[in-house]
Design a protein around this nucleic acid. Sequence first.
DNA 1: TTTTACCTAACGACCGGTCGGTAACCTCGG
DNA 2: CCGAGGTTACCGACCGGTCGTTAGGTAAAA
Lengths: 196, 196
Amino acid sequence: MAAMKNTITQAAIDLFFKKGYYATSISEIAGACGIQKASIYYHFASKEDLLFTIMHDTMAALTAYLRRNLERVSGIEKRMRRAVSCHVHFHLEHQKETFIASSELRGLCRSNYLEIVAMRDQYEGIFQELIAAGTRRGVFAPCDVKILSYAILTLCTAGAFWFKPEGRLTVDEIATIYENFIISGLKQGRIEPLPA
Amino acid sequence: MAAMKNTITQAAIDLFFKKGYYATSISEIAGACGIQKASIYYHFASKEDLLFTIMHDTMAALTAYLRRNLERVSGIEKRMRRAVSCHVHFHLEHQKETFIASSELRGLCRSNYLEIVAMRDQYEGIFQELIAAGTRRGVFAPCDVKILSYAILTLCTAGAFWFKPEGRLTVDEIATIYENFIISGLKQGRIEPLPA
DNA sequence: TTTTACCTAACGACCGGTCGGTAACCTCGG
DNA sequence: CCGAGGTTACCGACCGGTCGTTAGGTAAAA
């Protein structure tokens, strides 16, 4: 039951991704679902509510995905590698949603905006803790944690802007490239002790 | 003469940056200039023409700035360092314009869109040639040129999204952090010959 | 006299959102 | 097993408002 609510959400995701939130009208979304625009308001309180729901669910799924994948991984470098990999995978495999979540923040009113930003900050916090722990233990070179975390996250997030599923490289290949690039940057030229 | 045209452009830059292109109305821009909205159309053919002008001028200035700064720099690594530094400097010192140029592409019709994208591709090409030359000569580790160039550019471009002029770090400090981070990533763990 | 740089007023289109209505389905007392 | 009453999920029509844009006019400058 309420299958239509999912249909609406999916249509909205497709259209917000393709045309942007402001350029998409409620009647377009309704048209894509084969219903009248008034019927949208049975399922959602407003256009912004629809956007907020998409963003909120996406951020919740993203954070849960990362936490779940880090559960049984130990060692700073391994954890950071896994975190980057997860970040890339989620963003490329849920390209439309993550694109919307990171580019349509301006469509939200103040309270909704603050809620999404809080979720984003919490997610970023996981990376910042990893970086901080790594520098404390000498695995990573000393650095500015905030700047580096922004760098790492926006780097991978940006993938959702240009990624094409039918493109030259697989998600796994891209994730590996980013993983190595970032780990190198975090270590900053220090000479590696040879593995045993 | 035509001082008002500059006033309008600047007001549009401020408002597009603060609220976004779609959320900004012509009458708001006019209001910020102390004129009526119809008068905007004496200086610009349409709202999109205003956006396009901003983007076009910004991209032209960005490319010219980079070329000018690379003119007398030799050596792959030095050139790449300079290029990254320029990219960061320009994006943070012209934060509003570059933010608009990289986030409002959807406001353009097809032909205008293609023109701006062509300028962007040309700019990206400078970085891609640097990366390719670096890998050929063994200065950088072998890598996927396209992916790495996207990575480098979006990394720094993203600065325009969160940078606050009154913030903790200066533009120079941020540029240096990025410079080192990127060079490390491009060299990918290879052991540096000690400088003489 | 022509051009420049603005104005007032209005237009048509479209937008998000609301209203009253309704057909189909579910529930439950008799 | 029935049917009354409520609930679910939609529809068509409409509203107030805003938007980008245009038409026509005007006062000053060239």
